[in-house]
Amino acid sequence: MSAIEFKKLTKSYGKSRGIIDVNFKVEEGDIFGFIGPNGAGKSTAIRTLLGLIHPTSGSATIFGKSCIEHPQVKKDVGYLPSEVFYYDHMRVIDLLNYSASFYKKDCKKRIRELAEIMDLDLKKKIDDLSFGNRKKVGIVQGLLHDPKLIILDEPTSGLDPLMQQKFFELIRDENKKGATIFFSSHILGEVQRMCNRVALIKEGRIIKLEKMSDLRENNYKRIRIETPAAIDRSFFEMPGVSKLELKDHMVNFLFRGDINTVIRKISQTNIANLLIEEPDLEEIFLHYYEKEGETV
């Protein structure tokens, strides 16, 4: 049985677009990335899955059951929303105990463990916490009942890099223990680090569904070079280079393929500065759009 299954899920809000005909499965034990720009419909899909909003048509199920008809299925789900808000007047430990009280099992030990890993002070009042610390409360809250399915909606925003690292370790450990991870993000690097499979969503539609390893083979790099003297355009015209732009002493292009070939090429000339970075998501999407265009 799949941990998550979207079947022709459509949600429309009056005139504005929600999500259209979303179709995919997440198998148990997987770490699944769900990636798309802000406003693409990631949260809409997740909220429908959790039964917070009702589908216009189609269905979204967890372990074969809809959260709306079978609320009990949510006992196996841990959810970390992108923005974390809790009952302000409560202390952290009171909130966590309240959260635990819904699951009919003893979570005290796990709460202490998680709080230690995330370096969270349980005695503080929630009003007094910074955004990052609230996020930590959210993480502990989402994991304290050892859920079989963990749904993360842009989980790392607000966490410093060290905490992000700890958080990813925590999630990997949960996955090793058998939990399925559904990871929504607009940061490609994050998803690339974590996930086995990935779905790309744009403007409410799933445009690509593939193994992370396949996406890596399509590994694009954005390369920016500064040269001491102007350089001829033809120098960089080689296989794998696209969107080549030259301006003054700046060279700017996307490269796809064996990174060694382009490094060798660059080493043949005199350069003042070199920057190799992940292309942003928009550029990756653009690439998929273009590919779709080719096949049509």
Binding site: L50, L52, P71, V77, Y79, F85, Y86, F102
Partner: peptide, 17 residues
């Protein structure tokens, strides 16, 4: 209003409960 619906309504309880 206090944005805690995301907390409460993903717990294993029905809306009517």
């Amino acid at each position: 209003r206090e944005r805690t619906a995301d907390f409460l309504l993903v717990k294993p309880v029905s809306r009517s409960a």
